[in-house]
């Protein structure tokens, strides 16, 4: 089992980072979604404005709040505002 989460980035989030997928290391005690978002902001300052307006999913389910703990092997998706149609 990898000791990382798979961060999936879409649309403006992908453009800000330059990649669609990022592996992100998870410490022994787990990683709260809030901590991951803060770490992403720090690592990719251009991503910060997009993160503030985004929704987040863990394993294809919308997070109710950012206190959920992510485990190794989880997928964490960043959804900027939608624009279909």
């Amino acid at each position: 089992m990898p000791r990382s989460v798979r961060v999936r980035l879409f649309a403006t989030a992908r453009l800000a980072v330059g990649r669609a997928v990022l592996p992100w290391p998870v410490p022994e005690h787990g990683l709260r979604a809030r901590e991951l978002v803060a770490a992403l902001e720090q690592a990719y300052p251009r991503l910060a404005p997009t993160l503030r307006g985004s929704r987040f999913l863990r394993n294809d389910r919308y997070l109710r709040d950012l206190d959920e703990t992510l485990r190794p092997g989880d997928e964490f998706a960043v959804h900027p505002p939608y624009g279909g149609g």
């Binding site: 879409f10 649309a11 403006t12 959804h79 900027p80 939608y82 624009g83 279909g84 149609g85």
Partner: peptide
């Protein structure tokens, strides 16, 4: 359907 699709379905355009 079109209003909800545009704002609540994870689709993006560039």
């Amino acid at each position: 359907l079109i209003d909800e699709l545009k704002t609540t379905v994870p689709i993006w355009k560039e």
